[in-house]
């Protein structure tokens, strides 16, 4: 019988949630236990099955041709590497061209870096999506968060009405706080759109995610309702 803490780790391992150091320790345990290896396989199968919760969609037909072309090219290149006679100067010519190209890119990159340095250092963009794959929502939200100013802007589209006696509420999930920090109530206009500037009620220095929940009208100090959108920072 596998002890529960090890089963916990196996489930997290199958979902790819363990940290590098935890992975090393867990893989050592797996190495010495056939029973654990079988258990992990079963956890992996259960995890992978979750993918089938995604609404079924077929890829466009032309994608298959694109993939097959890519694979044929890959096969051809692999064959060419082992059989084709080498032109001695060709790698050097390619290297020289590549160096020249890199030089141009570096100059360009430095210029761009100057232009965007301020923005890059100041803001974080987060896309929010439904927490469950079968949640029938087309709503999309983006948060632009400025940690220096402790404020942000959220943009929401296609959000269904909260309903009578209800409001949507934004939360900042911060590693330094036990509970998500209240970032205010969001009122959606009749077109399902909201553009709101917000400032969390407490200092948020290590935000991990933003979430929107459906709450009682006027909002609540601590989340009670279901999370309808969430996005990792």
């Amino acid at each position: 019988m596998i002890p529960e803490p090890l089963q916990d780790q196996a489930a997290l391992y199958a979902l790819g949630l363990l940290e590098a150091e935890e992975i090393r320790g867990f893989e050592e345990a797996m190495h010495s236990s056939a029973e654990l290896r079988v258990f992990v396989r079963e956890m992996r199968e259960a995890s992978a099955a979750l993918a089938q919760m995604a609404p079924p969609q077929a890829p466009p037909a032309e994608l298959k041709q694109r993939v097959l072309r890519e694979v044929a090219l890959d096969k051809q290149n692999a064959g060419a590497k082992s059989t084709a006679p080498r032109v001695a100067w060709l790698p050097w010519a390619i290297a020289a061209l590549f160096m020249a190209f890199c030089g141009i890119l570096l100059v360009d990159r430095a210029r761009l870096r100057e232009q965007t340095a301020d923005i890059l250092s100041q803001v974080t963009f987060v896309t929010l999506g439904a927490p469950s794959p079968d949640q029938p929502t087309t709503a999309k939200a983006t948060v632009v968060w400025n940690p220096g100013q402790q404020s942000g802007v959220i943009t929401i589209d296609n959000m269904p009405p909260a309903g009578p006696g209800r409001d949507y509420q934004l939360w900042a999930v911060d590693a330094n706080h036990k509970d998500p920090i209240n970032a205010g109530v969001i009122r959606i206009d009749p077109n399902g759109v909201a553009r709101v500037r917000f400032k969390p009620g407490q200092s948020a220095t290590q935000i991990q995610a933003f979430a929107i929940s459906l709450e009682r009208e006027g909002g609540v100090p601590k989340r009670e309702g279901p999370i309808v959108l969430i996005g990792k920072v």
Partner: peptide, 16 residues
């Protein structure tokens, strides 16, 4: 589902 589809770690889910 939060772990699988939203790439949230168990720490982040606990916090959320």
């Amino acid at each position: 589902e939060m772990a699988f589809f939203n790439d949230l770690t168990h720490h982040e889910i606990a916090a959320a």
